[in-house]
Simulated scan of single mutants.
Amino acid sequence: MKYDIRLLTKAADDLLRKVTNPRHRKILINYRRHAILEVCGRYEEILAEDLTVENPDYLMYVGGAPVPYKGRDRVEALYGSMVKTNICVMMFENELLRVDDTGFSTRVTFHIFMPAAIAIHFGAPIEAHQLDEMVIQTTDRIMVWDYNEDCKLTGENIWVGGASYRICPPDEVITIEECNRILMPLIDKVPKPG
């Protein structure tokens, strides 16, 4: 079954239909825009001054160990490597999203599309004859994103649970090009409350 990439922003869209607080809406709109740009491989736009502070501070917990990404150069390198290795296309499922004056938190299942040759480095049980396949990595994550007084992203804190992997049939693969074709026309179609 091929994921409907338009559902990437479902939790944010559902909340935007309910939230009327202007600050909370700005944070959710920022997050929604960030998510779309990320899966489209457009990280330069994520780091633009209208969305993200000049020196963001990311902290990712993988296997219990913190991995910091401090400053624009380090965060930009992270996003750039995701595009270069073809692991930026992801789908969210069962997202539970909350927003407040300081940012948002979410609990979500991530499905990340990646080449098997890359997945093997994350611990995927890939056999030699599968190296040219695409894989879906599934993890549960908890994310807390912080925003400044101007509703710009200052940092991400992400806790990543254990991963499972499955070979993705070719007809289920979602590409960066598809994400751009399907999602970019929706980027400014923000749901209104009510």
Rank of each mutant, 00 (worst) to 15 (best):
R32G: 09
I112G: 05
V173Q: 05
L183G: 04
S164K: 03
D50P: 10
H129Q: 15
I182S: 04
V67F: 15
L186N: 01
C168L: 02
D50V: 10
A11R: 13
R25N: 03
Y69W: 14
R107I: 13
K189M: 12
I158Y: 03
N148K: 11
Y79H: 10
I87Y: 11
N30K: 01
G161S: 00
H129M: 13
Y61T: 11
D146Y: 15
H34M: 13
P169C: 08
E54A: 13
Q130E: 14
F110S: 05
R33Q: 12
H111P: 06
E54W: 04
C179W: 06
L96D: 04
P115N: 12
R166T: 04
M134F: 13
I29L: 10
E95S: 00
N21V: 03
A124T: 09
V99G: 06
P193H: 06
D13I: 00
P125N: 01
I167R: 03
A65E: 14
P125L: 03
V99K: 06
D140Y: 14
P68G: 02
L47K: 05
P169I: 07
I120E: 13
L131H: 00
E156I: 14
A117N: 15
I174H: 07
W159Y: 13
N157G: 08
D100G: 00
I187M: 02
T175Y: 09
M91T: 06
E49W: 12
R98I: 06
C88D: 03
V144S: 11
V160P: 11
R72N: 09
R23V: 04
V99L: 09
N94W: 01
R6F: 08
I118T: 04
E93A: 01
I187S: 03
E178K: 01
P56S: 03
G64C: 11
E76P: 08
A48Y: 09
S105Q: 05
L183C: 06
Y58H: 06
N157C: 09
M90R: 13
V19C: 01
Y79C: 00
R72S: 03
D188F: 06
D73M: 14
H121I: 05
V173L: 05
V108G: 02
D140Q: 15
T9F: 05
Y79S: 10
D101T: 02
